[in-house]
């Protein structure tokens, strides 16, 4: 196994006094698709937000491309090639589709390539090109997810974390978005899929981590993990 692009060791995150993530340890090998699954309330989102620099961790260590990035704020991590597509897409609702995408190329290294990036995103999601002058508030849920994904791609990240990308979307749209994610991965970007919908995530990902109540309780190659084993870890039986 190659050196992991992202290494998380004993990461802990709190909301005030409330311990949200107790201790999370996981590796993400470079160039792969990795899934992090867990039931509602397993603190998957909190873990992702802590890795991506939106929350400060209270203990533990995060290493990205060999560099210690523990506690580094989100705006600096984007420059280093780590992007998060947050839960619920979080588009800038008062801005047009294209302005949302251009915001994605805000980091200095991405600005020179903005035209090329836009073409790439529009080719990946042709519907966005049609609607590029509309405000994102007028889009459907699936289209907003596409904007959020495209916006993250505009920064040419090495690693993208997708937080519950399929939440609330119709199966056909999920299927389409997953196909695009595989394309993105085929282009060399490492992908982390955080999902409640376990089957599709496990099928797509080479490696799977299962979270339960703020801890990573099971890790391994998706193919080698037994269904029974995953179920036990998922529900804490």
């Amino acid at each position: 196994m190659s050196e992991p692009i992202l290494k998380v060791e004993g990461l802990q995150a709190k909301y005030g006094d409330f311990l949200a993530v107790e201790s999370a340890t996981l590796d993400v090998p470079a160039g792969k698709i990795v899934s992090v699954i867990g039931a509602n309330g397993a603190r998957k989102s909190t873990l992702m937000e802590t890795i991506a620099g939106i929350h400060k961790p209270s203990a533990g260590k995060v290493t990205f491309k060999g560099e210690d990035i523990t506690g580094m704020p989100a705006e600096k991590l984007v420059l280093r090639g780590l992007s998060l597509v947050p839960q619920g897409s979080r588009c800038f609702v008062r801005m047009s589709v294209e302005d949302n995408l251009i915001m994605g190329s805000y980091p200095k290294h991405a600005r020179a390539r903005v035209k090329e990036s836009l073409d790439f995103v529009y080719q990946l999601f042709p519907v966005l090109k049609e609607k590029r002058h509309q405000p994102t508030s007028s889009l459907s849920g699936g289209q907003r997810q596409m904007v959020a994904i495209g916006r993250a791609l505009m920064a040419w990240p090495d690693l993208i974390l997708f937080d519950e990308i399929s939440l609330g979307l119709a199966p056909a749209i999920i299927k389409d978005i997953y196909a695009r994610i595989r394309e993105i991965n085929a282009g060399g970007t490492t992908v982390v899929l955080v999902e409640q919908d376990t089957n599709r995530a496990i099928r797509t990902a080479e490696y799977t981590h299962v979270m339960l109540k703020g801890r990573v309780v099971l890790s391994g190659r998706s193919k080698e993990l037994g269904e029974e084993e995953i179920k036990k870890a998922y529900f804490g039986l």
Binding site: Y15, G16, D17, T46, E49, I54, K56, P86, Q87, R90
Partner: peptide, 17 residues
């Protein structure tokens, strides 16, 4: 789960003496 505003980090700390 909502991501709290970035600048609000300290408030929760102060409340918990």
């Amino acid at each position: 789960m909502k991501i709290p505003v970035l600048l609000d980090r300290k408030k929760t700390k102060a409340a918990s003496s």
